[in-house]
Design a protein around this nucleic acid. Structure first.
Lengths: 347, 347
DNA sequence: CTGAAAGCGCTTACAG
DNA sequence: CTGAAAGCGCTTACAG
């Protein structure tokens, strides 16, 4: 345990005042060159490491961002975190990560902890904002950006409260289904989570409907099947669909996880993908490219969602104005239809 | 921007000294009950949030752990991070996450940053420790735990320097191959990364060999195929294997990623898994259960690796003794052989 | 059991 | 351009 070197030690060795040493540390312009050099030499000689705790106490800025994450284990979020991370690093910020697993208590505690640790801003990732969580975030009185987060309560100005990053669900669904229509499918079923979900299911159903109608296919609510956001539920629901007297030739799925479960049901029944049934997923999780046959999907720009979100946040931290921005990112079709597709094209 | 409430304000409202307010905050026992209540009431009334930056400056403990991570996007690591997170939370610690992407510069910077932010300890996750990184970690002069990390340099006491969490590679490979032998396979190939890799490839090859010999099968180095740690390389290498005049009936793969690439090659050639060729992977990444047919694999106890690592670290932070511990965790066989297996058994 | 005071390691007006 | 001093919001011996 060597004694910790502080600025006072540096200043003494360099033969300057402690304030001057501090100015060198902070790259303050008004320091004579020769003085700067003396101080830098002393720092090197003593192997000085600045204490950011002390600096933060004075400067009121920790250069730290809190990231509240509803679920880490899903590859979906880890890419977003990667985007956040890289951008934060670029701007000299560090990240407090808290994986709250959807428990409201843990989320509230997490926000509290971040307030106590004096983060400069918070990114809230995924999940749904309850009124209580929103209030806690407002109390924190620091910039907040929501990424891929919905709300489950009504309040006129909800969208005005925090900046946000989201995807264009309706257009994405429209494009996915248009693609299937172009492949000449006439009977296209949709697998979705709860039809009442305003944040994503409803706009996607709307896009699905719009694409059908634009292609002269009548919308039929009986072809919109509800299931859970899980592999197993996709599997079971697809089994039911396969028993239909007149089964669809194509499936548009709310998520890749559901699409994968459905694919298992299809392959297990002896049918082929895409020869007998085409399927388009949503999210572009890793498994869709490693699956055989690889699954076509709507690719959410996850990395960009993270990095753009971080950029918004940093801008809000620096501009006290506090204009809230709402960014809607496009989703792109990732075609992986053919089992004979070259592996390099897949990945 | 309401004025920030500090302990002084609380003390004034409660009619006590600031030291007493601090003692209440820290749950110090020697405070009269009625005093404590007055202070707690004042805190509530003012909606007081302690400033942990100031507390840390005095107390020399930030209750913060730095996690240096070589690669986040892989689901492999996110489960470990989840284990770290949960355990950290349990003990009241927060996590600085830094995703360094294998760049040595970024790793060194990251360690530097964590020193400046005064983390109480560091967890280093995955990758390989170079001598320079090891020295930088030693300079930090705080507890460090390595999880699933190898070294690429020789130094007698390397393993004595930091505590570590690793898996039992040799036994894992032994069990995987024993399983294939029990299925009556006589010609079992191995797909591995660089045979010279001391940290994992060599012990796994040793386990593979031991299992073969125990089952009366002669070890044949020609059946150990080198490839890269990638889907594509697994695919290409398997294509070569399939062209062999006498092809193996089973494959033991160094990783799931390689196994998945190999599986694509097998299925694409018109052969079936497991009827024509059995395959056992390693890691238990998510895709192995969603693949069709689901892939049998050696399951690394990722969550436990994270939580045990965090426990080791916290113990080292509290005990100044600093006994280094080296935990070797077992890997378990996750059988997913049959395409007709019930979905609930798979997941 | 409690208050006053020193101090954690910095930054930043304020003089000069 | 630079030094001395006050202060960031706490904690913790030290008296009492």
């Amino acid at each position: 345990m060597s004694k910790i070197v502080k600025l006072k030690d540096v200043a003494k060795l360099a033969g300057v005042g402690i304030g001057t040493a501090s100015r060198v540390l902070n790259e303050h312009p008004n320091v004579k060159d020769s003085t700067r050099r003396k101080v830098l030499d002393a720092m090197r000689e003593l192997n000085y490491t600045p204490n950011n705790i002390a600096r933060s106490l004075k400067s009121k800025s920790t250069r730290t961002i809190g990231v509240i994450l509803i679920e880490l284990s899903s590859a979906f979020y880890s890419d977003i975190v990667e985007g956040i991370e890289d951008t934060a690093n670029e701007y000299g910020y560090s990240i407090f990560l808290n994986n709250t697993r959807k428990y409201e208590d843990r989320i509230l505690e997490s926000i509290q902890m971040m307030c106590e640790k004096k983060v400069d801003g918070i990114i809230y990732l995924g999940g749904t904002l309850t009124e209580e969580i929103q209030n806690k975030l407002l109390d924190a009185n620091i910039p907040v950006v929501l990424i891929s987060t919905g709300t489950n309560f009504k309040r006129k100005d909800t969208t005005e409260v925090f900046s946000s990053i989201n995807i264009d669900n309706e257009t994405a669904a429209f494009e996915a289904v248009t693609y299937l229509c172009e492949l000449k499918h006439k009977k296209i079923a949709m697998l979705t989570i709860n039809k009442d979900d305003k944040n994503s299911a409803m706009p996607r159903i709307k896009g699905y409907r719009r694409a059908l109608e634009k292609n002269g296919i009548e919308f039929n609510d009986d072809l919109v099947f509800e299931c859970e956001q899980s592999y197993q539920s996709g599997y079971e629901t697809m089994q039911k669909i396969l028993k239909l007297e007149e089964r669809p030739t194509a499936i548009f799925s709310y998520s890749d996880l559901i699409a994968l479960g459905a694919s298992r049901a299809i392959l297990q029944s002896g049918l082929r993908i895409p020869e007998d049934i085409s399927i388009v997923g949503f999210d572009d999780i890793e498994t869709t490219k490693y699956f055989y046959p690889a699954i076509t999907t709507m690719r959410q720009p996850r990395y960009v969602m993270g990095s753009r979100g971080m950029e918004l946040l940093i801008r809000e931290i620096n501009d006290k104005e506090g204009f809230k921005q709402h960014v809607i990112l496009p989703v792109t079709l990732q075609i992986r239809e053919s089992t004979s597709q070259k592996i390099k094209d897949l990945i």
